[in-house]
Design a binder for these strands. Structure first.
Length: 480
RNA sequence: GGGGUUGUCGUCUAGCUUGGUAUGAUGCCAGCCUCGGGCGCUGGAGGUCGUCGGUUCAAAUCCGACCAGCCCCA
């Protein structure tokens, strides 16, 4: 009779259903009444807030300032950079009316903010002294997703940050692109415990309007790739149409060099997909809203003393900056609470009951390994701190092994298809650099080039598409 | 873009073939019970059957359109 409450499918049997159940039943998010939109609930938003604070901190340290942009963009601005507009056009929502009357110029609901940001940059920048201009915006973006929506992974609206910068020369913009990608990589690997591949996008896959795009790719448990974050070098592609010019020291007027970059709530979906198990989520300690959940186990006559002890433990943990919480709800049994917190993915649980109090100990249970052990009350704080660290690194290591074991190579189209069909994952191949070969592989295998790695392994052979000899190494994969 | 499939108290669900005022569980509320892996007992509240329209004396049920969810393929 209790079977219906938790996650009812195995991760390995029906990954898609498992994922959706995880999102809904852990109360991270819920569907909204309109197609393709979701509602982030307090538990999900708490995770997002932690991620946001971590990233904000790094951006502040590197000289970026937060601002806010309007959600509506006049059509004339959005269409100024042609490639950019053509790329986004199919999924732009338009506002055409105010009340009953038609608007003179229709307004786009932002699919991304380059155009409106840069129309302002051109006002704000006139001298080399105004540079670099490094701004960041925490907002949402809207892109109409008609089909294949998946909570947090692909929705018509998503939370993200978008950074926009302007620089005096190309090198400085190059450097900015790299610095940002490093910040993302550190956040994703060290805090979200998700290993990534880093590199360039091909011209086909790059951000529309960019000179080049760098990105981080991760591998989900079902063998599909997921783009985690991107950092674009925009060259002068936007500064020319938007006339963002400055007078240099040498009194020569120049266009600025720009970057833009972003990371979205999609990473929360990735955390679920990579780390979760049949019981639900497993959250990396560093971004878990609750790091230690304390479950007091009591009968009526022991309730007061056990709860009191639980609050004491909570206080001690909090004094050591551990996000601890007592589940003091009387309405649920302890067994129910165990399952509930496991589904929510809290990394470490403390069980404390009357018999533990008498023996001056508590039980610790790791979410990642299900390992359980007793510690004395005195050891609790230190044991919790060190166990949380172990969980954090164990989660990364496990995911890293999964990534390595599912990164293979292929030298022919047939081999590539067979590897993809059998295992999924990333497949290293050689590629001549031509769009035709990239398209051919897509057509034959539905996979695309996820990344042109910064650090190729140098197993170069002839092109997977045309067989030409001069090639570079790329990673193919089927993606979300 | 193409194809398939689903929608019934908060949630899951029976009923639909063959039209006649909706079943059960869980959750919720009250009371009792008490908690070491989703306790138990008693009572109670809760439903425009996704929406709109059509057929009919009568529609959850038949027909159409739309909305929303999910799956497969491109």
């Amino acid at each position: 009779m209790t079977k219906e409450i938790g996650i009812t499918v195995k991760k390995s049997n029906d990954f898609s259903d498992w994922y959706t159940q995880c999102v809904l039943k852990s109360s991270i998010a819920d569907y909204s009444p309109s197609k393709g939109f979701i509602i982030l609930r307090p538990y999900g938003y708490a995770i997002w807030e932690i991620i946001r604070e971590l990233l904000d901190d790094e951006l502040r340290k590197t000289g970026h300032k937060n601002g806010f942009l309007p959600v509506l963009i006049p059509e004339s601005l959005l269409t100024k950079e042609k490639d950019h507009f053509d790329g986004f056009m199919p999924e732009v929502f338009w506002v055409t009316k105010s009340g009953d009357s038609d608007l003179g110029e229709k307004l786009a609901v932002r699919p991304t903010s380059e155009t409106i940001a840069y129309s302002m940059f051109s006002k704000w920048i006139s001298s080399y002294r105004d540079l670099p201009l490094k701004m960041n915006f925490w907002n949402s973006a809207l892109r109409a997703e008609i089909k294949s929506t998946k909570p947090l992974i692909r929705n018509s609206e998503f939370l993200w940050q978008e950074g926009h910068t302007a620089h005096k020369d190309e090198n400085e913009a190059d450097e900015e692109v790299r610095v940002i990608l490093d910040i993302y990589k550190n956040l994703i690997e060290q805090f979200l415990a998700l290993p990534t591949l880093s590199g360039f996008k091909t011209d086909k896959e790059k951000f529309v309007g960019a000179k080049y795009t760098t990105c981080l790719e991760s591998l989900m448990a079902d063998g599909k790739a997921l783009q985690m974050a991107t950092s674009h070098h925009l060259g002068q592609n936007f500064s020319r149409p938007f006339e963002i010019k400055f007078l240099n020291k040498d009194t020569v007027e120049q266009f600025v060099w720009q970057t833009s970059w972003g990371i979205s709530w999609r990473v929360i979906g990735a955390i679920i997909m990579v780390h979760g198990d049949d019981k639900g989520l497993i959250l990396p300690p560093k971004i878990s809203p609750t790091q230690v959940i304390i479950v007091p186990i009591y009968k009526d006559d022991s309730k007061a003393v056990v709860k009191q002890k639980a609050y004491e433990l909570e206080q001690k943990l909090k004094e050591s900056k551990i996000r601890a919480q007592v589940d003091d709800r009387d309405a649920y049994t302890s067994g129910w609470k165990f399952n509930d917190w496991e589904m929510k993915g809290v990394p470490l649980r403390v069980n404390v009951g009357l018999r533990d109090i008498k023996e001056n100990k508590v039980e610790l249970i790791r979410r990642d390994t299900k390992e359980r052990f007793y510690v004395t009350e005195k050891e609790l704080v230190n044991q919790s701190l060190s166990t949380l660290e172990k969980i954090q690194s164990n989660m990364f290591d496990r995911a890293k092994i999964h990534l390595q074991e599912n990164t293979r190579s292929a030298t022919t189209l047939e081999e590539l298809l067979s590897v993809l069909d059998t295992f999924g994952g990333f497949v290293a191949c050689s590629w001549c650099g031509k769009r035709e070969c990239e398209d051919l592989v897509k057509e034959k295998t539905t996979a695309d080039i996820r990344i042109v790695p910064f650090n190729p392994k140098n197993n170069i052979s002839s092109c997977i598409g045309c067989g030409k000899q001069e090639t570079i190494e790329v990673y193919f994969g089927r993606a979300y």
